[in-house]
């Protein structure tokens, strides 16, 4: 039982670190010239950040074992934040394309 729980935490940590490296890889090194506005990369890395935050809240903070209300509130906050950020970014792109 306890080892299963520890194993789960370790897997969570490996996944989170892996996602971090992936988002680094997405945002890094493919540019030879100066950085340019890039919606796919931005959408990708911000969504991955929201996903990582959700995993931290659900697993490390043990929200998955908390009453449903808490999970709903945290998920709603993350979703709203992500949508607002991406929405603002998209509007900005619209002006500058």
């Amino acid at each position: 039982m306890q080892t299963a729980g520890d194993k789960r935490l370790s897997i969570v940590w490996i996944v989170l670190s892996g996602v971090t490296l992936v988002s680094w890889w997405i945002g890094f090194d493919h540019h030879t010239g100066p950085l340019r506005l890039n919606a796919p990369i931005t959408f990708g890395v911000l969504s991955l950040a929201a996903l990582k935050s959700r995993i931290i809240i659900q697993e490390f903070m043990e929200a998955r074992r908390a009453p449903r209300l808490l999970r709903r509130i945290t998920d709603a906050w993350l979703l709203l934040l992500l949508l607002s950020l991406l929405g603002i970014y998209s509007i900005g792109m619209g002006f500058h394309l």
């Binding site: 988002s23 945002g27 890094f28 990369i41 991955l48 935050s53 931290i56």
Partner: peptide, 11 residues
């Protein structure tokens, strides 16, 4: 995690 995405990696 969110600050990292906003400052370092987003374009």
């Amino acid at each position: 995690v969110i600050i990292f995405a906003l400052l370092y990696v987003m374009r």
